[in-house]
Design a protein around this nucleic acid. Structure first.
Lengths: 189, 189
DNA sequence: AAGCTAAATTTCAGAGCTAAAGAGTACACA
DNA sequence: TGTGTACTCTTTAGCTCTGAAATTTAGCTT
C-alpha cells in the first residue's frame, strides 16, 4: 500500500525511511506483497507528495496559499472571462459549498477575485478573477514549469513519452472504474 | 502545473475536465508549456488522487479513518514490538506533535493503540499497537493489494519494471534536492 | 542539594474543512 | 395571483490541523 499524503498545504515532509527500507519492512510484516507493485505504488505516492511540497513553497513565496492557487487555476482554465459560480467551483475542486464560501471570502479580501450577484438570477453568485489574480497565476505557472522541467531533465524524450503513456493508461483504468468496498475495480462502461 | 490534491481524507473527486481538455486549456492560457511535461505531471497527480480516494473508501469500510490508517502503518512498519513515541510518530507522519496528541487520544478510545508513560524516563510516552490495531492494518493491506494488482493488471512485467525504475529515479531527484523559492532544483550533495 | 537548561508532551487559540440546517430566489402550476 | 417546490448560496456546529505557550521530567552545574 502506498503512503498516504500529508494535507494539501503541508510544507514539509516527515523524516521517513528510504523507499528500500520501507519496502523491506512491508515484506517483513506482510508476506503477500508483490515488491514490484509496492515499488511503483510507493514511489508514485512519495513523488506526488514531494511535488506538492515544492508547489506549496512556490505559491507561498508568491504570497498566496495553496488553496488560493487551486481556485485561481480553476478560474483561469475555465477561459475568459474567467467567471464561475461558487457551486461550480466547489464541484470542480471537490469541496463542499460551505468551504467555497469561506475561500471566496478570503480571496475577495486578498484582491484575487470579486464576488457579485448575478442580476439576471439573483440566487446565483458570480466569482470573477481580478487582473491581480490572473497575474499571480501566471507567476506561479512560470515557477512551476521551471520546477517540472528540472524534475524531468534526466529523462529522454522517448522516456517521457513512455512515462506519459503508461500513467495515462493507469489513470484511465482508475477513472473508468470504481473500486467496490472489497477493493476490486469494477468497470462501469 | 499539476493538480493539487484534495485533503487526505476527502472521499470524492470533484467533477473535472478530462486530462486532454485540461491540457488544452493550459496551452490556451499559458503558451510556454511543454504538453509532454504537463501530461506526465497532471496524470501523476490525478492518479495519486484517485488512488487515495480508493484507499479512503477501503479504510472507512473497515471502520477506521484515513488518519488512523497512517498511524497504524507507521507503527507496524517500525517492527515488533510495535512501539513508538508521539514525537517520533509525528516526525514520521509529518505532523506537529500537537496533532499527534489528538490522534492518539482518538485511537486509544477506539482501541487501536495504548498510551503509557515510559517508567524509565517519565517525560516520554510510549504508544503501542494493540492486537486489534494490528488486525485492522492487516485487513486494510489485504484490500489494498487487491486494488493495486487490479490497477496494474494491464501492465506487463517489463512495463512494471520500467515504470518502477523511472519513478524511483524521479523520486531520487526530488529527494536529494530542494527547490529554492525560484523553483529550481539545486542538488544538496 | 538547588537551581538551570534542555527535551518531550500537552494545552490553547486560530484557521479551514465537512455535514446539516437555514435563507433567499426563481419557476411551475393551479 | 398565490403557493409549493427546487435550487443556490450562506450560516452554524463540530472536528482536525498548525504554531506557540505552558507543563513536566531529566540531567547538568555549581
Amino acid at each position: 500500500m502506498a503512503d498516504t499524503p500529508g494535507g494539501p498545504g503541508s510544507l514539509h515532509i516527515g523524516s521517513e525511511p528510504t523507499l528500500e527500507e520501507q519496502i523491506a519492512a512491508y515484506q517483513r510484516e506482510f508476506q503477500d506483497l508483490d515488491p514490484q507493485v509496492e515499488q511503483i505504488v510507493s514511489a508514485l505516492s512519495r513523488l506526488n507528495r514531494r511535488m506538492n511540497v515544492a508547489y506549496g513553497r512556490q505559491t507561498s513565496a508568491l504570497g498566496i496559499s495553496n488553496t488560493d492557487w487551486e481556485v485561481l487555476k480553476a478560474l483561469v482554465l475555465s477561459g475568459a472571462p474567467y467567471r464561475m459560480g461558487p457551486g461550480e467551483l466547489a464541484k470542480r475542486l471537490g469541496l463542499t459549498p460551505a468551504a467555497m464560501t469561506h475561500r471566496i471570502d478570503r480571496m475577495v479580501t486578498e484582491g484575487l477575485v470579486t464576488r457579485e450577484r448575478d442580476e439576471s438570477n439573483r440566487v446565483r453568485v458570480i466569482v470573477e478573477l481580478t487582473a491581480e489574480g490572473r497575474e499571480k497565476w501566471l507567476e506561479a505557472m512560470r515557477l512551476a514549469t521551471v520546477f517540472e522541467e528540472d524534475l524531468l531533465q534526466d529523462l529522454s524524450s522517448e522516456e517521457r513519452t513512455a512515462l506519459g503513456d503508461v500513467l495515462t493508461r493507469l489513470l484511465r483504468r482508475v477513472e473508468h472504474a470504481q473500486p467496490d468496498a472489497g477493493g476490486r475495480l469494477s468497470d462501469l462502461d
